[in-house]
Amino acid sequence: MSTDVEHEKRALRAELRERRQLLSDAQRATAASGIREQLDALIEAHSAESISCFLSAMTEPGTREFVAAAVQRGIRVLLPVTRADGLLDWAVADDTDETSEGLFGLPEPTGEVLGPIAVNDVDLMIIPAAAVDSTGMRLGWGRGYFDKTIGSMEKCPPVYAVIYDSEVLESLPREVHDQPVTGIVTPTRTLTLSPSRP
């Protein structure tokens, strides 16, 4: 049975999705450039040698430039591969930009697939989101992949969600399974919101 929180989340996601679709190509390109700068600085600040990230879809803040540059610098980048059972497999990013279409029509890597526990070795996780509030609560797109992944990790590294500046909200509806993030990365800033997990 649907709850009020689920309805609120659904309405908010629809509004955020619509806002993203209204962005121009120039706005998207500027955002991608800003995201790359912020993420490069974040990796530096954490001395991260191995990270997880995602391949941005057309309406998402662009991460592809960042991923390609990180791989060229010798950073190990794991990219998520969706599974029908609600878990994520991972593939190591390489210097090709070949992608395939995942379960939900989103771009996914084509390299060798590693199991769900491969992500346990990363120094930093960079994940997608629809919005994040001032306490670090993240609103995803409703499939629960990243909440499950983060919630099941024994020793979770810092987790940063990538969103547009307008998607940093005062508060978000939350459910028991929702996992907070350490911080957010937007095209203009990086904010640390909640303490890293033990």
Rank of each mutant, 00 (worst) to 15 (best):
G105L: 09
V185R: 00
A29D: 15
R36I: 09
V185S: 01
T149E: 00
T192W: 01
D40L: 10
A11F: 07
G62I: 05
P158C: 15
R19Y: 05
A93V: 14
W141M: 06
V119R: 00
R28H: 08
A70G: 12
T135G: 12
G111F: 01
Q38Y: 02
G142K: 02
S171A: 15
P187I: 09
I184S: 05
Q38W: 04
E167L: 06
D121F: 05
T99Y: 07
P198K: 09
Q21F: 07
L114F: 08
V77R: 04
T186Q: 02
F146S: 12
R197E: 05
I163V: 15
V176Q: 11
G111M: 07
Q21M: 08
R28N: 08
D123K: 06
V67Q: 04
P187S: 11
D94W: 08
S24M: 03
S47L: 08
L103F: 00
A69V: 15
A161C: 15
D178A: 02
D133C: 11
T149Q: 02
I117H: 05
T182M: 04
G144V: 03
E154S: 14
A118H: 02
S100E: 13
R197A: 13
A84D: 09
Q72T: 15
S56R: 08
T99C: 10
G105C: 10
Q21E: 13
I43K: 03
W90V: 14
A118N: 04
G140V: 04
I35A: 09
D178T: 09
S56I: 13
D147K: 00
V162W: 01
T190K: 06
V113I: 15
W90P: 14
A130C: 13
I184L: 02
A41N: 10
V168K: 02
S33P: 07
Q179H: 08
L193E: 09
L87W: 03
S47C: 14
E98D: 07
S152F: 02
R76V: 15
P158R: 03
S47T: 15
G62P: 10
S50D: 04
T30K: 05
S33F: 03
R174D: 13
T182V: 08
D4W: 05
E18N: 05
I163W: 00
D85Y: 00
I127P: 00
T30E: 11
T149M: 04
D121G: 11
I117F: 10
E154I: 11
H7N: 14
I75W: 03
Q27R: 06
A11K: 07
D165G: 14
G144E: 01
K9D: 07
V77I: 04
L88Y: 00
R189D: 04
P80R: 05
M125A: 14
S33N: 10
I35H: 00
Q72D: 13
V185L: 03
D121N: 09
L16Q: 00
S134E: 07
E170W: 05
L87N: 08
L106E: 06
L23N: 03
Y160H: 11
G142D: 06
G136K: 01
P198T: 11
A161V: 11
K148S: 12
E60L: 10
T186M: 09
R13E: 08
